[in-house]
Design a protein around this nucleic acid. Sequence first.
RNA 1: CGGGGCGUAGCGUAGUGGCUAGCGCGCCUGCUUUGGGAGCAGGAGACCGGGAGUUCGAAUCUCCCCGCCCCGACCA
Length: 576
Amino acid sequence: MLRMSTLLLRTLRDDPADAEVASHRLLVRAGYVRRIAAGVYSWLPLGYITLRNIERIIREEMDEAGFQEVHFPSLLPREPYESTNRWEEYGPNLFRLKDRRGNDYLLGPTHEEMFTLMVKGEYSSYKDLPLSIYQIQTKFRDEARPRSGIIRGREFVMKDSYSFDLDDAGLAVSYEKHRNAYIKTFERLHMKYNIVSAVSGAMGGSRSEEFLAPCPTGEDTYVLCEKCGYAANVEAMITKVDAYAGAEPAAMEIFDSPSTPTIDSLVTLLNEKFGEGYQASDTLKNVLLMADGKAISILVPGDREVDLKRLEANLPGVLELRLFEDADFAKHPGLVKGYVGPQDAAKFGITVYADPRVVLGSHWVTGANERDKHVRFVTHGRDFTIEKFIEAAEVRAGDLCPNCSTPVVIDRAIEIGHIFQLGRKYAEALDLTVLDKDGKSQVVTMGSYGIGVSRAVAAIAEQTYDELGLNWPREVAPADVHIVATGKDDLPFNTAEQLAKELEAAGLRIMLDDRRDASPGVKFKDAELIGIPFIVIVGKALADGKIELRVRRTGDKSEVLLESAVAQIVSVVTAN
RNA sequence: CGGGGCGUAGCGUAGUGGCUAGCGCGCCUGCUUUGGGAGCAGGAGACCGGGAGUUCGAAUCUCCCCGCCCCGACCA
């Protein structure tokens, strides 16, 4: 039983000055966490109970799915991370340190290497697979900008699992099992979430999905179709296009277009010159970039920008991507800044990619590769060709859902889980192989699955808080029932004490406000701020032999006869 | 890492060159009070983020450093 009279807790009446987002503000005010450094937090009793409740739910669901829990140190030697090249690759986000002998160590930002090595150390036969193992562990990442309290910390608790399979079909099964376990877990946590397609990117692998908890303070933006439920990371959004249905375009026609380096100025000129209701989307923008030292051009309709993150996610294997600079133009004398067109790209040695909207057979107004000249009726397939289509144009609210053509919305969310098919990258780097049926050595294929545990505390707070304070789902809350005793004599306190014992015996977790020196107002405010889902008040109504039961979430209040209180409370609470 | 803001007691804050750094919450003592953050009286708690400088005199001005928050870049 938790007792307010002795609990290490001091609620704050004012919002802390350094907390902006609601979850951070309330978790500090309600005495759950305290900031120690940027992105580093201590957990007070209430907070730690809540965190452990979430851990327990996750653990139960992982065990239920047949995954085995293991545990690795946070303090790790350099070598394993050397063989996968991540000692370097992880860059400044890695906390590095030295022991007294000067040997390099790191604080684990993620544990792919250790999991892989653990399996390598024990297993060597296909008969041992499939295997899924997980841990709940503190991770360390020296983020450039920790933010939003415990939503993005530099030290945080994460559940990470890895699956090990002989082949892709097995990986698909393990992936699906994790996906289902995650669905069950987040349902139990009472979270609202969307499963969103993501781009697996440089990590390789074929499938990747994120569990995103919609929330205005979230730092991820994603695309959602409210009609069919299609959800995708902005990077993974698929552009819906129709085949070109117009007439065969006229031959290319070059025209003078002095001082029209921008799309706007070009559209104005087009309408003056040809009067045909030209729009920015009729022009073709040629965005020039350097990809690992190679010049590439991305063709997008003139009303769209190139989204560099999206481009990068869809250009696997490219390490350095940047926009053309003046020096790059100098190296490609055929290219005239502001007047570039794809017609001569092959001649200039430029690889051309195009947004899917630049469909085969469509015609465009674009640069003539001559100063002050543009050209119209430039037709894809006839006048230029591309290397391939690429999803690189910015995504906007109102773009069409690839499944059902409904305009999509763009929403914000907190990433609470991520599952993806890792493939063989780590198994290859660390030489994790097993012998198959035929006695041949096979590289194992892996999946990687994460849940942000400490982040979930904040995400749940964000999705449930109200103007009175925190407002937890029952399983997550630090207790089921918060009993408040008010009054000046012993009767309500003794009654509350007795009630607390009986409810506890009935299996409920109880917080008892047994403070004699606090006024009723203070106790009510504290109870609401702390956010335990049921509040029982033992006070004034005792005169009629009753207690009051309140439901924090709905604000419902009802009076219950003391004799039947235990049964009533248990039934209301467990029905929830 | 770029841009912006802030650093005064546990928390929230006032104080822009001049008395002993002020107030509210919280904390301690006593009395009163007990259904919506009670009242009165008394009290403890601050090297004003750190260092250097300017000045007769610095929380206040200057320089350097550190820390924190927000926007952006970044984020297996």
